[in-house]
Computed example of a mutant assay.
Amino acid sequence: MTALITGASAGLGEAFALQLAKQGADLVLVARSRNKLNLLAETLRGEANGQVTVLAADLSSADAVDNLIAEVILRDLKIDILVNNAGLGVFEDFLATTFAQQVQQVDLNVRALVALTHAFAPGMVERRCGGVINIASTAAFQPLAGASVYAASKAFVLSFTEALSLELEKTGVTITAACPGPVATHFFAKMNPTLNAKQMDQPTPVVRDILRGFERGERVVYPGKLANRLGTWGARFLPRNMILRLALKTTSKLNQS
């Protein structure tokens, strides 16, 4: 079994690498920092017997995504599990930021995820095994003023994943969307004010929950605190204007501006 993990150098990506390595998987680690990936690869090679391949790439670049796919094919790596974990969130008002900042989220959170899924899922279907884990968010369930493009990108990930899961449900391939709440990773480290530990889940148990749901063939997984799932129910049943304003209170506390 070979698993390709994006955003593998820290946080959830690192936790995925550690847990999948313990399960005996060969790993393809992808992130921007080759140095961080090499350090993680050394750790993994010392703890597990699987092969570890490091491929540095900035997946917000379309060319880098294409080059990554080409490199995987050139090395004849058969990807059995794809973990689309790399992501970017801009928690600032839309007009207070540059277009480049906002569209980078779309390129990484949406375009790269779709491109890698389209590249590697056909091999899984052909072999009638494996699957894709796409990291969405509880942000996928409602618009977030102050993080408008980020929330919209995660809504895309959730919708795309659920639809693709249905398309492939008889192929032996599992397609799972994970919808965590805040997780104690570098993603939230620079938020102002900083979230405290009690408000966040830890990466290791979150990834454990995700992998357990994936192994069960679940279409959507809500890892971590029960409050994460309960919060998505409110987004479905409360009046839309109320949800918009409640969500704004949350993003206002995290807004960097």
Results as ranks from 00 to 15, higher is better:
Leu230Asn: 06
Thr171Glu: 14
His186Thr: 14
Pro180Tyr: 10
Val83Ala: 05
Arg75Trp: 04
Ala115Asp: 09
Arg208Trp: 05
Arg240Asp: 11
Gly24Tyr: 13
Glu71Ala: 13
Leu144Lys: 12
Ala8Thr: 10
Lys170Thr: 11
Val220Ser: 07
Gly181Val: 04
Ile5Leu: 11
Asp107Glu: 08
Ile81Trp: 03
Pro182Glu: 03
Ser61Tyr: 03
Leu238Cys: 03
Leu230Gln: 09
Leu116Tyr: 06
Thr97Leu: 00
Gln23Trp: 02
Ala21Tyr: 09
Arg111Val: 07
Ala227Asp: 14
Ala10Asn: 12
Gln105Phe: 08
Val30Gly: 05
Val110Thr: 09
Thr204Glu: 15
Thr194Leu: 11
Pro143Trp: 12
Ala56Gln: 03
Val207Ile: 13
Gly46Pro: 09
Ile69Gly: 02
Ala115Pro: 04
Lys249Asn: 03
Lys170His: 14
Arg236Lys: 12
Leu12Tyr: 05
Gln105Ile: 08
Phe156Asn: 10
Glu162Lys: 15
Cys129Asn: 15
Ala48Cys: 10
Glu14Met: 12
Arg216Ser: 10
Val125Ile: 12
Lys22Tyr: 01
Ser153Thr: 15
Ala25Ser: 12
Leu158Cys: 05
Ala197Val: 13
Glu42Ser: 13
Asp201Cys: 04
Ser33Val: 09
Arg216Trp: 04
Thr250Leu: 00
Val72Met: 10
Gly24Trp: 14
Ala62Pro: 07
Pro239Gln: 00
Ser61Asn: 04
Val220Tyr: 07
Phe94Tyr: 10
Val65Cys: 14
Arg245Met: 00
Pro223Val: 08
Gly89Asp: 03
Thr204Gly: 07
Ala145Gly: 11
Thr171Trp: 08
Ala8Pro: 08
His118Ser: 14
Ile135Leu: 15
Asn84Tyr: 04
Glu215Val: 03
Arg245Cys: 00
Gln105Lys: 08
Arg212Ile: 09
Val54Leu: 04
Pro193Trp: 11
Leu144Val: 06
Ile5Trp: 08
Val183Cys: 15
Pro182His: 06
Val110Cys: 13
Val114Met: 06
Phe120Cys: 08
Lys225Tyr: 09
